[in-house]
């Protein structure tokens, strides 16, 4: 759950880029850093960082997840906020590290790290209180909030709060908005048929809004939904709404 009291704006923060953004969506990570820097916050990106450990955690391989998590704890030692452009990875560090390290020698360090974790949109809205000015063309946007942002981090409304500041952005609400897109990490691989049925419905509902743009705070969901959009474009000749991480979308529309 998001903090009830937010700390004052810090001078310096850590940025945890996530492995998915590192390898597939680096532009989202760069945009997030630029958004943060524009608010006159010094961003530190420890180059040693790798992955939060969630894939192994969700697959039941806790020792393997802990080994990776333990490395991250070492790479983010300072007592400053850690901002993460993903509800899912933020949720892993904030809510699951305490479970993963329960009774371990470095439990205190894990708890300390967990307490410093912020999801990006949460940080922009609640801590930095950003004021955005829209420089873009009029556009209709659908928002997909990831389940982890919604339910683990409790930051479901932050994207809408940010988009609400953009005068030329019209948010279109899709049916079954709060329902999972069917990604679920290894779920998409282990239960491909169910996952496919879920993403088929998700794309259907987003298309029905007429929005030409989709934003989310999680690249896992984006990979799933935009992959399905692209497939449907290739095989069924349907137009594919543009799918972007919220950071990338915000930066594109607001930097001069």
């Amino acid at each position: 759950m998001s903090q009830t009291t937010n700390p004052p704006k810090p001078d310096t923060i850590y940025f945890f880029g996530t492995c998915l953004i590192d390898l597939i969506y680096p532009k989202a990570g760069v945009s997030a850093v630029q958004l943060l820097q524009r608010e006159r916050v010094k961003v530190i990106y420890p180059q040693a960082q790798t992955c939060c450990g969630q894939p192994a955690w969700n697959s039941g391989y806790r020792d393997e997840a802990r080994q990776v998590a333990r490395a991250q704890i070492k790479f983010f030692p300072k007592n400053i906020p850690i901002v993460i452009p993903s509800g899912s990875c933020a949720g892993m560090m904030k809510t699951h590290y305490p479970e993963l390290f329960k009774g371990e020698a470095d439990e205190v360090e894990a708890l300390n790290l967990a307490n410093r974790v912020y999801e990006l949109t949460e940080f922009l809205v609640d801590v930095l209180k950003v004021q955005l000015q829209d420089l873009g063309e009029a556009v209709e946007v659908a928002v997909h909030t990831s389940c982890s942002a919604r339910r683990e981090m409790g930051v479901a409304d932050k994207i809408e709060q940010l988009l609400g500041q953009l005068s030329n952005v019209d948010v279109k609400e899709q049916a079954y908005k709060t329902e999972c897109c069917g990604f679920g990490g290894t779920f998409a691989i282990k239960e491909p048929e169910i996952s496919a049925a879920m993403v088929a419905d998700k794309t259907l509902h987003i298309r029905a809004t007429g929005a030409t743009q989709l934003v989310s705070q999680d690249c896992g969901c984006l990979m799933n939904i935009s992959g399905a959009f692209a497939y449907q474009a290739q095989h069924e000749g349907k137009a594919a709404p543009k799918a972007q991480h919220i950071a990338e979308f915000l930066w594109e529309r607001t930097h001069g």
Binding site: I21, P26, K27, V30, A228
Partner: peptide, 20 residues
């Protein structure tokens, strides 16, 4: 199974590590 209903994700030219 992934590509039965989706296109395959493409790796970026440069990682975030490299770009930052």
């Amino acid at each position: 199974a992934w590509t039965k209903v989706r296109t395959a994700p493409k790796l970026a030219e440069q990682t975030l590590h490299q770009q930052l």
